[in-house]
């Protein structure tokens, strides 16, 4: 059984990697700083470690999906991230793709392969 859990951990890690990005993009139509995102996602049941999220934000910014701005007015300086124009487009497309994956996978899982319709 321990073996199965090890496999699960590994697979879940792979599975999460992509979904976290969607989760992050979904929250950034309004500017957010890193830790507020961790909290927001956590409240919605998506647990992201800050050590994963912060580097991810920087990467998405580097790729041009996010824009950032330092807010130095508060007690401690914070970097706020916001979807860029490209980021917005990519996010909308990504949502469509994601929904189609969910539909297909649900279909496959529920049917458990009983329904054989040709090669498809």
């Amino acid at each position: 059984m321990k073996d199965a859990h090890e496999h699960l951990d590994k697979l879940m890690q792979e599975l999460r990697r992509g979904t976290i990005t969607i989760g992050v993009l979904s929250q950034l139509s309004e500017p957010q700083y890193g830790y507020s995102l961790v909290t927001m996602l956590g409240e919605n049941g998506l647990h992201v470690e800050p050590g994963t999220l912060y580097p991810l934000l920087r990467r998405l910014e580097k790729q041009g999906l996010l824009e950032s701005k330092w807010d130095t007015n508060e007690a401690r300086p914070r970097k706020y991230y916001l979807l860029s124009k490209t980021g917005k487009e990519v996010y909308d497309l990504l949502v469509v793709e994601w929904k189609s994956i969910v539909t297909s996978l649900n279909h496959v899982i529920e049917d458990k392969g009983d329904d054989v319709d040709g090669d498809g």
């Binding site: 700083y33 890193g34 830790y35 909290t39 800050p50 912060y54 920087r58 401690r76 300086p77 914070r78 970097k79």
Partner: peptide
């Protein structure tokens, strides 16, 4: 420099939380 400021902010946020 950038990451240091960010990281310090994060740690403080986490502590406060």
């Amino acid at each position: 420099k950038d990451i240091a400021i960010e990281l310090r902010g994060l740690i403080e946020d986490m502590l406060e939380d």
